[in-house]
């Protein structure tokens, strides 16, 4: 990679900092070879800007419009979303929840004493650790490792392409 050419092209494109610009301008003024390279790259850049466009055939626009007229008229995506329908669906769900809640309150006997259900938190872990559960655990680990490896390899392949 030629750093001098890259430097000059960045200067011509206006993609360098003020400090770099000053350094390059000094080099252009003092270094004859550098100046020659700058001039040649500047000329090519200018010619690339001035290149004329290729013109398609006279019937190009007509052909495009003929094809376009066979298509369905495009519609802005925003107009396709009817907010009334969205709000309607939302209202329906809220009504259903309120109805179920009201019905549940209506049929429940609120006079009875309410007591918290007793929960059994004692957990005999030794019952669950057996050869079968260990094999299942290791198998799941293996599957997860393979998925991770696959994702890692795919990422590498995409970066290369």
């Amino acid at each position: 990679m030629s750093t001098i050419e890259e430097e000059i092209l960045n200067y011509i494109d206006g993609n360098c900092s003020l400090a770099e610009k000053t350094i390059i301008e000094t080099k252009i003024a003092r270094d004859k070879e550098y100046n020659l390279l700058y001039q040649s790259l500047l000329v090519v850049s200018q010619q690339l800007i001035e290149l004329e466009f290729e013109e398609p055939s006279m019937s190009f626009t007509r052909n495009v419009m003929d094809k376009v007229n066979l298509e369905l008229k495009p519609v802005a995506m925003q107009t396709k979303i009817n907010h009334k329908i969205i709000y309607g669906i939302g209202a329906l769900f809220i009504c259903a929840i309120l109805f179920i809640l009201g019905y549940a309150i209506a049929i429940s006997n609120l006079n009875k004493n309410f007591s918290m259900p007793k929960l059994n938190f004692s957990f005999a872990i030794h019952k669950y650790i057996n050869p079968t559960s260990l094999k299942i655990f290791l198998f799941l680990d293996l599957v997860l490792a393979l998925i991770y490896l696959d994702a890692l390899l795919r990422k590498g392949t995409f970066k290369k392409t």
Binding site: E54, N63, V64, K67, E71, P74, V75
Partner: peptide
């Protein structure tokens, strides 16, 4: 071929103009 590509491009753009 270039005309075919360019025509195809404008038709696709028309179809997707709403997006």
């Amino acid at each position: 071929d270039a005309e075919e590509i360019a025509q195809d491009c404008f038709v696709k753009a028309y179809r997707a103009l709403g997006t």
